[in-house]
């Protein structure tokens, strides 16, 4: 399990190469990356992500531990950036490794759903007219229900 909360960008190719080759029993790796996209008015200058240092790492570890228990996984990887991010920048990635694809797909989705609304990050969209905090979406909250 590797969890990193960081300011800097990361090389997704290198990360996955290392992750894929950790165990010869791994037959399926699912990875997801989140990217900064424009807002509906196409006016985004950049995004800023605030976090709760200390709790962030703990919360992510907690959900990764749950995923490792619930699905048959060899490993899981979460990298999440904070600070200032530009349009098109990578925000985060999740990867899960299993023998078969079903465990890898489901656990990756589980981790994404929990990272979205249970890991202490807050996104702020900056435009030329000022900024606004991204509002949480009810759908994201509902997404958690299917894992209970």
């Amino acid at each position: 399990m590797r969890i990193s909360v960081q300011l800097n960008d990361f090389d997704i190719g290198k990360e996955l190469q290392l992750f894929n080759s950790a165990d010869t029993n791994i037959g399926a790796v699912v990875s997801f990356q989140g990217i900064v996209r424009n807002n509906s008015e196409k006016s985004l200058l950049h995004m800023e992500i605030e976090q709760y240092p200390g709790m962030t790492q703990k919360a992510i570890s907690n959900y990764v531990e749950i995923a490792l228990e619930r699905w048959s996984l060899y490993d899981a990887l979460v990298i999440h950036r904070h600070g200032k991010l530009l349009l098109g920048d990578r925000i985060m990635m999740v990867a899960t490794a299993a023998k078969h694809r079903r465990d890898a797909f489901q656990s990756a989705e589980f981790l994404m759903d929990y990272l979205k609304s249970r890991a202490p990050f807050w996104k702020k969209e900056v435009t030329k007219d000022g900024y606004q905090w991204v509002k949480s979406v009810l759908d994201d909250e509902r997404a958690l229900e299917r894992w209970r």
Binding site: G34, H80, L115, K116, P120, W122
Partner: peptide
Amino acid sequence: VAINQELCEFDTKLTGATEIAFFPPMTGG
């Protein structure tokens, strides 16, 4: 709200709390 870096509820007791945090719903991922 979180007490000692763990999410809790508004009716949670403060017993043993060294750190308490208030914030809007998270928007990670």
